[in-house]
């Protein structure tokens, strides 16, 4: 059983998740990803539903709402989302990263979602 598992793991790591149509991330995207991680955006946001539930899933936020919409949240935060004090360059980098994530796939979600503890999450509206 363990042997099957290793073969299976190797498959998932390689052929099972091949995405040939996809370009490698640029320098800017990598910087954006680092910023996303350093600021622990994941504590409140998800990609493909994975992450914290306080804020909405960000997988397709750019194509759904547009980059300017996303940027608006980064500029000053909201009541619930902190202001991270990012400069223009850093915001550009994060948006580039979110765009990169967006082109990777579509995460379907219900019309609106109501995350645990009561945060309302706008979906496809």
């Amino acid at each position: 059983m363990t042997a099957i598992f290793f073969v299976y793991s190797a498959y998932v790591w390689t052929a099972g998740t091949e995405a040939p149509q996809h370009a490698a991330p640029t320098e800017q995207v990598m910087r954006g990803q680092a910023l996303y991680q350093d600021n622990n955006c994941m504590a409140c946001h998800q990609f493909y539903g994975l992450g914290g539930y306080m804020g909405p899933d960000l997988t397709n936020v750019v194509s759904r709402m547009g980059p300017d919409y996303a940027r608006a949240f980064l500029i000053a935060g909201t009541e619930r989302m902190p202001d991270f004090g990012l400069n223009q360059q850093q915001m550009d980098d994060i948006i580039a990263f979110l765009e990169f994530v967006d082109t990777m796939g579509v995460y379907e979600s219900p019309e609106y979602e109501f995350k645990w503890y009561g945060t309302v999450v706008a979906k496809n509206d």
Binding site: V12, G16, T17, E18, H22, A24, L50, M104
Partner: peptide
Amino acid sequence: RDNMVREITV
């Protein structure tokens, strides 16, 4: 890291 689908699936 360069392949988001692979990264998240793994």
